[in-house]
């Protein structure tokens, strides 16, 4: 049982690093897109406020929340693999 817990902890640690990194990357992409949109719309008002509003909307968006799949997909694949490896003939 202890090795299983250790394996889970290692997986969670690796996935957390990846989750944080991809989270930063996705937010950076969104911010860049917002800055470009602000330019394309003819610079409406304050740039920082425009981007901040867009980022607030992004944090509530489905795309932001879908990043949780970074945890779900590998852990689900591991669970399926445990079954397939050991109990399917």
């Amino acid at each position: 049982m202890i090795p299983l817990l250790r394996g889970l902890l290692v997986m969670l640690a690796v996935l957390t690093v990846f989750y944080v990194a991809v989270g930063i990357y996705a937010a950076s992409l969104r911010r860049e897109a917002l800055e470009k949109a602000w330019e394309a719309e003819g610079r409406p008002g304050d740039r920082a406020a425009y981007v901040a509003a867009g980022m607030a909307a992004y944090r509530r968006s489905f795309r932001r929340r879908a990043l949780i799949l970074i945890y779900i997909l590998p852990l689900g694949a591991a669970a399926i693999l445990v079954y397939v490896m050991n109990w399917r003939d």
Partner: peptide, 18 residues
């Protein structure tokens, strides 16, 4: 075992029977 390589194989005794 549970970390590497990630096969999660725990049925070696069953495999030996097969």
């Amino acid at each position: 075992g549970w970390i590497w390589p990630p096969y999660f194989k725990i049925n070696s005794f069953n495999l030996q029977a097969r």
